[in-house]
Simulated assay, not measured.
Amino acid sequence: MALSKIKPLCVTVFLLCCVYSFSQNEDTKDLEGWSSIRLKYKLNKKWSFELEEQLRLDEDISEISGYFTQLSAEYTLIKNFKIGGGLRFTRVNDNEGKVQGYENYFRFQLDASYKHKINNFSLIYRFRYQNRNEFSVDDYANQKLRLKAGIEYNIKNWKLDPKFSAEIFNRIGEADDRGFKKYRLTLGTDYKFEKLGTIGLFCRMEEELNETMPKTTNIIGLKYTYTIKNK
């Protein structure tokens, strides 16, 4: 297939997937919007650090769901294999029930990821352990294991390479609340501006598992990343 036909085809597939995802009215409970700004610092070939600020909107992108600040680090252990971790402080808007307002949460995460290439495809696999708990509340931590697999296709002379990933969340800890809780499907792309950073756009679907009335959430996201390299 000619390159001139591949480019509009990728854009069309991306738009159709978004439209299809957001048109499922029967099972869809909410539409959310996620926007983030990231500052990434590459110390050397081994170490990189990242500071992120993110805002999330729910109720069909009409109310603030929450926002967080996250600091993370990543280390290249061997070629294509990285380990990392992150700390996150989150403010969650609780707008249901008699007692409403913002609640404070702290989360830490540990990651291990592997990336390799097959022709024009890049494949990445990530394992994450995360632990989240609410400040000033005597309760057990919400612990999850997350397994993610992603693929990206590199189109020659085309900056909007498509990306797709699938992720599943498995809760651990308390015996009565263990098991797979939800899965996440994401389709997106990035555009890199010379010396100005990278803008990413994605559409995402999340669906709960093992629930009597599972919630489906559709998400549209916009992210900006600026990278500084140590010279």
Rank of each mutant, 00 (worst) to 15 (best):
I78T: 13
S21W: 07
N157C: 07
D30Q: 02
Y153D: 04
T69A: 13
E174K: 14
D176Q: 14
P8Y: 02
R56F: 01
K40R: 12
I37M: 05
L51F: 06
S23F: 09
I6C: 02
E206L: 05
Y224E: 05
F180L: 04
K82P: 00
G85S: 04
L201A: 03
R132Y: 05
Y41V: 07
F49L: 10
V11L: 15
K5Y: 12
W158H: 08
L71Q: 04
F127Q: 11
V99D: 12
L16E: 06
D190M: 04
G84L: 00
S113F: 05
Y105F: 15
K45V: 05
W158C: 09
S113T: 10
D176R: 12
R184I: 05
R56G: 00
K79D: 04
L57D: 01
T216Q: 06
E134W: 06
E59D: 15
Y114I: 04
R171F: 05
E53N: 14
S65F: 10
Q70S: 12
L16C: 12
L201P: 00
N104A: 14
D60E: 13
Y183V: 03
H116T: 14
V99P: 04
F68R: 06
L187W: 03
Y224H: 09
L51G: 08
R38A: 15
F135Q: 09
F127R: 05
R146I: 07
